[in-house]
């Protein structure tokens, strides 16, 4: 047993981040094995008119390509998915994605709340939400839904965040299972990966 004593019930990892999260995300993606056991679904705030470049920027250091899903694309084990600019990214029934151009939420589209909430609705307790550095409170409500439905919640340690607002908002709204630095988040994910092998 590793130090996190994590089980292998999980179906997906959802990661939300905003200002100051890019480095953390690339560090995580570059540290995971190529054949990671779960899908990783990223919802990061980004400029809405810049449609291209972000997948590439993230892919450069990642051990595997980061792709922006097409509407109704199936979610595959080991895939790394990024919410496209100017769309909300939702987890749909039948283990697939759904995109939406609905109203901005927390001034954001993609909104982290949408990805986290729909993920927790579809996967129930079998989902892990990770919220990184950011300057607004998007994602806090989604983390609460994950917790309420029995999933696992992790935030980046506010002390390590470039901007702590986002994880701090989640911590004040719901119970967070682990408050970790990026290196520890990587350790956690590697231990989790071992449970599936």
């Amino acid at each position: 047993m590793g130090k996190f004593q994590v089980s292998s019930i999980y179906k997906a990892i959802l990661i939300g981040g905003s200002a100051g999260s890019f480095q953390g995300v690339t560090k995580i993606l570059s540290s995971l094995p190529k054949e990671f056991s779960l899908p990783i679904i990223l919802c990061l705030h980004r400029l809405k008119h810049v449609r291209n470049g972000f997948e590439e920027a993230l892919s450069i250091k990642s051990t595997k390509p980061v792709t922006e899903p097409i509407d109704k694309e199936s979610i595959k084990k080991g895939g790394v998915y990024l919410a496209p600019s100017n769309y909300h990214l939702a987890i749909e029934l039948g283990n697939s994605f759904s995109l939406s151009t609905e109203e901005m939420i927390n001034n954001s589209r993609p909104a982290i709340d949408v990805t986290l909430e729909t993920g927790s609705y579809t996967y129930r307790n079998k989902v892990i939400g990770i919220l990184l550095s950011g300057a607004n409170k998007d994602g806090a409500w989604g983390m609460k839904k994950i917790k309420d439905r029995g999933g696992l919640t992790i935030v980046q340690d506010p002390a390590e965040c470039m901007i702590e607002t986002m994880p701090a908002a989640a911590m004040s709204l719901t119970t967070i299972d682990y408050v970790l630095e990026i290196e520890q988040i990587i350790e956690f994910l590697l231990e989790l990966d071992q449970q599936y092998r």
Partner: peptide
């Protein structure tokens, strides 16, 4: 891309 400018926390102001 993500705006990496360091700004002060505004958690208290967010509604």
């Amino acid at each position: 891309m993500i705006d990496s400018q360091k700004v002060t926390s505004n958690a208290s102001q967010s509604r």
